[in-house]
Structure formats: structure tokens, C-alpha cells
């Protein structure tokens, strides 16, 4: 047994947007697990798809020159959206990519249960080890991990114990793969409505934010405290519907609503608290440069 050298910096994979990258200290770090937690419709899946595309960029463009493995647990896989993103991605980075279709470098596998995920881990390992893909696989996405645990487990002490043992088994396996193949691992998680008083679940505060709000409701990440111990970094995406103060009430009598989205670092071993606003457009997910003067009521 020999100690490892610490003189090599951790590689990062760009999210495909400089503003969001800056917020995360350069992107998603390799050799660790990053969780993106948000309610549905907040852009988790889109961010993951964009990440799978960006990973193909060469390191000079912030990528890993790598293909990715996308494990989806929610159906159907959003292939149409991936196609849309990949077309705009291709036109944006024509020089950096050789003329292949970027979608060819994303391998998709469906997973239906936690046990199945554990079962296919050896298969994943041999896929990573003897990859005959053009680019080596260096990104694994699991979208979402919460869906694997939605139905099978009861809220009894015995089942919760069994569930957390599976959390740790999955996490340990993913971390081992991340380390031996220098992978970035991203998992998404859902939120549940927060019930009760005090901070967090059972009064436990986890991370920088005393409380998380999305769509005007107080929420907390699904899967509880045990799972929070299984990940290295947690990023929260929130959304808030606000009345667009520019359009206001239109002549047609409709109120124009605008969705303000925000990305926050909840905890990460290498990052301080930071956050940025972002928008979802046809061509992808993009951070918004913070304006010097806040023009209208910010949602902070």
C-alpha cells in the first residue's frame, strides 16, 4: 500500500455554460458523486443531457473528451429533447468536435429498481474497462435515483434500514468506479414537501441553506439523511413563478408569469456557498450573469 500523490488537480467536466461552471468551481468534479436535487420541471434532466453532451468536448473547452453512460429510471427517455440539444450543441462547437453525431457518444440504459442497479454494476464495470467506444466513458448519470426507491420500501424501521444499506452499497460501488476510471458521477434526486416545524427533516439542517423553497413550497431532498451521507456534493435547483413586472397584466387580460430558476450549492467539500440564476431555452440550460443593479424584486 502506497500513499497517492496529491499534486494532480481534480479534473472537472463543464456543464456547457461558463456562468454555471463558475458557480460550481469549474464544473462537475471527477472521482466523486454530485447530486442535483429539484422538483420535477426544474431542469434536472435537461442539465444532465447537456452535461452528457459537454463531456465530449476536449479538455481545452472544459470537457473530458469522453462519452457518457446515462442510466434513466423515469420513462420514457427524452430522446427528442436530446436530439434538439445535440443539434444546437453541434452547431455551437463545430470545430471542437469531429464531425460525429454527439448522440452516438451517449449510451442509454434503463433501470427499474435498486436491486437491478446493483445487479448491473459488474456489467457497467466491464463496459467501462473494455470500452470499444470511440471516446472512453468518463461520465455516469443516474436520472433519477429517487425513482428507484419510490414504491418498494415501506416507512417502517426495518425497511428504512434495508433501504439505507442499499444506498451505501450503490454509493460505494459508484465511488469505486469513479475512482478507478476517473469518472464524474451525477445523480438526480427529487424533493418531498417539508412537513413539520424546525429545520430540515426531523429538525436536521443539512448544508448551507436552512431551508429550501421551490414553487413557493418548503421542500427537502428525498431519501433522507442516510442518502445525504452517500454523496459528496449537493446542488439544488429551485423555481419560482413570479408575475412578469414588465409585461404585467397584458391588454388581453392575462397575467404573464415568468419562471425564475436558481442553482445553489447546498454542500460540497471544495466549494463555498454560491448560487446563480439560470434559464432553460430551446438550445439548452444557461446561467444568467448577475446584474449589478437588481432591476426588479429578486427572489432571495
Amino acid at each position: 500500500m502506497k500513499p497517492e500523490t496529491l499534486l494532480l488537480p481534480t479534473e472537472k467536466c463543464t456543464l456547457g455554460c461558463p456562468v454555471m461552471d463558475r458557480c460550481l468551481g469549474g464544473g462537475i468534479p471527477c472521482k466523486s458523486i454530485t447530486e442535483i436535487v429539484a422538483e420535477s420541471g426544474s431542469g434536472k434532466t435537461q442539465l444532465c443531457l447537456q452535461l452528457s453532451l459537454s463531456a465530449q468536448l476536449p479538455p481545452s473547452h472544459g470537457g473530458l473528451s469522453a462519452s457518457s453512460l446515462f442510466l434513466h429510471t423515469e420513462f420514457p427517455f427524452p430522446s427528442r429533447r436530446l436530439h434538439q440539444l445535440s443539434v444546437s450543441f453541434q452547431s455551437l462547437h463545430r470545430q471542437a468536435l469531429n464531425n460525429n453525431n454527439p448522440s452516438d457518444n451517449i449510451f442509454v440504459q434503463s433501470v427499474h429498481s435498486a436491486d437491478q442497479l446493483l445487479d448491473i454494476m459488474p456489467k457497467i464495470e466491464s463496459f467501462l474497462a473494455n470500452s470499444r467506444t470511440q471516446l472512453p466513458v468518463r461520465l455516469i448519470v443516474i436520472d433519477s435515483v429517487a425513482a428507484l426507491f419510490r414504491s418498494e420500501f415501506e416507512n417502517t424501521p426495518g425497511d428504512l434500514k434495508r433501504r439505507s444499506s442499499i444506498f451505501f452499497a450503490i454509493s460505494a460501488k459508484l465511488k469505486a468506479l469513479a475512482r478507478s476510471f476517473d469518472l464524474a458521477v451525477v445523480v438526480t434526486n427529487q424533493v418531498v414537501d417539508f412537513v413539520g416545524s424546525g429545520e430540515g427533516v426531523n429538525g436536521v439542517r443539512v448544508g448551507n441553506l436552512g431551508s429550501l423553497y421551490s414553487s413557493g413550497r418548503r421542500v427537502c431532498p428525498a431519501l433522507g439523511l442516510a442518502w445525504a451521507n452517500c454523496i459528496n456534493s449537493r446542488v439544488f435547483l429551485s423555481r419560482e413563478e413570479t408575475v412578469n413586472s414588465y409585461a404585467g397584466r397584458g391588454e388581453d387580460g392575462y397575467v404573464y408569469m415568468q419562471t425564475r430558476r436558481r442553482l445553489c450549492v447546498v454542500f460540497a467539500p471544495h466549494l463555498p456557498y454560491s448560487s446563480c440564476e439560470f434559464v432553460i431555452r430551446r438550445d439548452g440550460v444557461f446561467g444568467v450573469e448577475p446584474q449589478v443593479q437588481e432591476d426588479h424584486g429578486s427572489s432571495r
Binding site: 500513499p3 496529491l6 499534486l7 494532480l8 488537480p9 481534480t10 468551481g25 468534479p29 472521482k31 466523486s32 458523486i33 465511488k175 469513479a178 475512482r179 459528496n232 467539500p269 471544495h270
Partner: peptide, 15 residues
């Protein structure tokens, strides 16, 4: 120091 990392949270840039 000997640092035994079981979780992968030891980030060189932070150190």
C-alpha cells in the same frame, strides 16, 4: 499527516 479517505471528499484544490 496520514489522510485515509473512504468517501472521496478530499479535494486537492481545497487543500
Amino acid at each position: 499527516a496520514i489522510y485515509i479517505d473512504t468517501e472521496g471528499s478530499f479535494m486537492v484544490e481545497r487543500v
